[in-house]
Amino acid sequence: MDARYEPKILALICTYCTYTAADMAGSLRLQYPPNVRVVKLLCTGKVDVLHLLAAFKAGADAVMVSGCEIGDCHFLEGNLRAKERVAHAKELIAEIGLEPERLEMFHIGASDAPQWAKAVEMMTRRAKELGPSPLRKLEAAALAAEGVAA
């Protein structure tokens, strides 16, 4: 594996819990890998299977969805729906030959900054072990062919 490989990880997280935790992790100056790109959502119930597939299409090496802890969703069951959709999307990407481990659901409470840092570390380690997404490599090759620096 290319030692210079740094995974690109997309995190779809809800504003009420996980985002607050991530924010607090920043204030506490907790250290965690910089590989994650955060998209803040009102609720993970907004996450659609199509978004998850689109993330891989766009070249993500891994995708994490993180909502409130079970039972704590601001919209009661948005995180439960997200959990179901992540499970479904794992099956869908497995069908096309992508490792389902590239996608994971987390539940992280608003006050749990260390938990967020741990989740990002875990996902980064996993993405490194899995290597670059074959889709990303293809994307890069296509760009290179067009003479654009990746």
Partner: peptide, 16 residues
């Protein structure tokens, strides 16, 4: 239909 198209799209890309 949307999901299947997205899947086929990714699979087609993987298969070159």
């Amino acid at each position: 239909a949307g999901i299947l198209a997205a899947q086929l799209d990714l699979a087609g890309q993987l298969a070159g």
